[in-house]
């Protein structure tokens, strides 16, 4: 059987809220090392990769590898019934056709159980190598969210250019154009506001803002978003979930013909 208890149930709520508009349904894969998901959006332009480590759970048991297909909209409906401070336990019998979500209030005076029907989902799994990237930018998650939101009011795509000490986001639209530059800033007294750039080679790539805006829904999960870019490769946008794992998004670039 599979059974996993997350004391900070809010994490699971935030993860599902961050991905439910991007992917319709997905297989959640459970094995002894943890709980993970990989899924592409319906147009196969972006990919979501979630991994929650077994040791990030208060209790974790997975007797054999299972893949549980769920519709994200249904999962979201159920998780909205959990309070933000509830602990959430997921349970499923081997070969079961449902997964049970149990919500416990902090004083355990309220216990609720919701069963979600599992589905068979055909999904394509991509092998993504653990590349070294040309440039890595770590910036406050709220700042990244604001940049992609603001630029979306002007254009549909963003050119992200990283140099040694700054990252520039630029867009062009019918009404004009916009550029936002963030300089490296390693303020030791305010680590949550730091912007750090690690670069092997200057890089500049163009992406659809619609998807980056969707990725930014993961902002509540982490203080920082980490952008990893390499020439002619998909961008990786990572949100580290402290002590539990990470939620990562990949987006294929726009290529000039």
């Amino acid at each position: 059987m599979f059974e996993a208890r997350l004391a900070q149930g809010a994490l699971l709520k935030k993860v599902v809220e961050a991905i439910k508009d991007l992917i319709e349904d997905a297989n959640f894969d459970c094995n002894s090392s943890g709980f993970s998901l990989q899924a592409m959006d319906s147009s196969h332009v972006s990919l979501v990769a979630l991994s929650l480590r077994a040791d990030g759970f208060e209790h974790y048991r997975c007797d054999r590898n299972v893949s549980m297909g769920m519709k994200l909209a249904s999962l979201s409906k159920i998780l909205k019934c959990a309070n933000g401070d509830d602990a959430i336990t997921m349970k499923s019998e081997d070969n079961g056709d449902t997964i049970t979500f149990m919500f416990e209030s902090p004083e355990q005076e309220r216990l609720s159980e919701f069963d979600l029907k599992l589905m068979d989902i055909d999904s394509e799994h991509l092998g993504i190598p653990d590349n070294e990237y040309d440039a890595t930018v770590k910036l406050p998650a709220a700042e990244f969210q604001r940049i992609v939101k603001d630029l979306s009011t002007i254009g549909d795509t963003v050119e992200i250019s990283v140099t040694k000490d700054a990252v520039k986001f630029g867009t062009t639209g019918d009404i004009g154009n916009a550029n936002i530059m963030c300089r490296q800033n390693k303020a030791a007294d305010k680590p949550d506001e730091s912007t750090e750039i690690d670069i092997n080679e200057a890089v500049s790539l163009t992406f659809a803002l619609r998807y980056l805006n969707s990725f930014a829904k993961a902002t509540p999960l982490s203080t920082h978003a980490v952008l990893k870019l390499s020439k002619e490769l998909p961008i990786l946008v990572e949100y580290h979930i402290p002590e539990v794992g990470r939620l990562a998004f990949y987006l294929a670039p726009k290529i000039e013909d």
Binding site: V45, H125, L126, A208, A252, I255
Partner: peptide, 14 residues
């Protein structure tokens, strides 16, 4: 803004 390519142009299915 260029041509949008898919993820499968970069990574192979496993």
């Amino acid at each position: 803004g260029g041509r949008q390519v898919g993820m499968t142009a970069f990574y192979a299915a496993t």
